[in-house]
Amino acid sequence: MTAAMYVPTFYVKQKFAMISNRYELLAANPDGSFGDLLGFAEQKKMAFKEQVTFYLDPAKTRPVFGFKARSVMELSAGYDVTDEAGNQIGFFKKDFGASLMRSTYRLEGPGYTGTGQERSQAVALVRRFVNLPLPIHFDYVDAGGAPLMSVERQGGIKDKYTVRVPDQRVDFRVAAAVAVAMDAMMDR
């Protein structure tokens, strides 16, 4: 089964803003360079109930998908990913118990469930004590251990992520929501 919106590789670029995090979703050209704009999101820092809407463009002319926390106060409640009409197309949440040593997330979508975890235990431990722009890589696998997606952050002042989605069941909108949420949850 192939997702309604499947994109095998794309980029997430964070744009600097004082009171919000801004993200551009960009296609990956065959040569690895940035391609067309696939979407734009803005997340208010320190929002009481986490909700992020993705738009067609920075002018916010048309909302196309989003994610929203299920609960205001419960840290492990999780987030629903919804399409343009508000229909749920995926779900993710941080596994706080497993994340003490290495950040871990749970991911669900039509036809799959999976777990994502920081690739390097050493980087995970250093990151907890020092705020440096370290490269952070997350790998998501399904219940059988097959790769679902990966999110790789390149070190630098402005965050840039490469998102690879080898599993065609994972919708682009779910992968993009997870990548942006991970950045926001790590308070980058």
Results as ranks from 00 to 15, higher is better:
Met5Asn: 13
Lys13Gly: 04
Gln14Arg: 15
Gln14Met: 10
Tyr23Pro: 01
Tyr23His: 13
Tyr23Asn: 09
Leu25Arg: 04
Ala27Ile: 05
Gly32Glu: 06
Ser33Ile: 02
Gly35Pro: 06
Gly35Lys: 04
Asp36Thr: 10
Leu38Tyr: 07
Gly39Arg: 06
Glu42Ile: 08
Gln43Trp: 07
Lys44Ile: 13
Lys45Ile: 11
Val52Asp: 00
Val52Thr: 14
Thr53Val: 14
Thr53Pro: 03
Phe54Ala: 06
Phe54Met: 11
Phe54Pro: 00
Asp57His: 06
Thr61Ile: 01
Pro63Phe: 10
Val64Lys: 11
Val64Gly: 02
Gly66Lys: 04
Lys68Leu: 07
Lys68Trp: 01
Ala69Tyr: 08
Ala69Trp: 04
Met73Gly: 13
Glu74Lys: 15
Glu74Gln: 13
Tyr79Trp: 02
Asp80Arg: 10
Asp80Glu: 14
Val81Lys: 03
Thr82Gln: 06
Ala85Ser: 13
Gln88Trp: 00
Ile89Ser: 10
Ile89Glu: 09
Gly90Pro: 04
Phe92Ala: 11
Phe96Leu: 14
Phe96Val: 13
Phe96Trp: 14
Gly97Tyr: 07
Thr104Asp: 03
Tyr105Ala: 03
Arg106Phe: 07
Glu108Cys: 07
Gly109Cys: 10
Gly111Thr: 05
Gly111Tyr: 09
Tyr112Ile: 05
Tyr112Ser: 05
Thr113Phe: 08
Glu118Gly: 12
Gln121Cys: 00
Gln121Arg: 05
Ala122Asn: 06
Leu125Lys: 11
Val130Pro: 02
Pro133Glu: 09
Phe138Lys: 00
Tyr140Val: 07
Ala143Gln: 14
Ala143Ser: 15
Gly145Pro: 03
Pro147Gln: 02
Met149Trp: 02
Gln154Pro: 02
Gly155Ala: 15
Lys158Leu: 15
Lys160Ala: 06
Thr162Cys: 03
Val163Met: 03
Arg164Asn: 08
Val165Thr: 10
Val165Glu: 01
Phe172Asn: 03
Arg173Val: 08
Val174Glu: 06
Met182Cys: 00
Met185Ile: 09
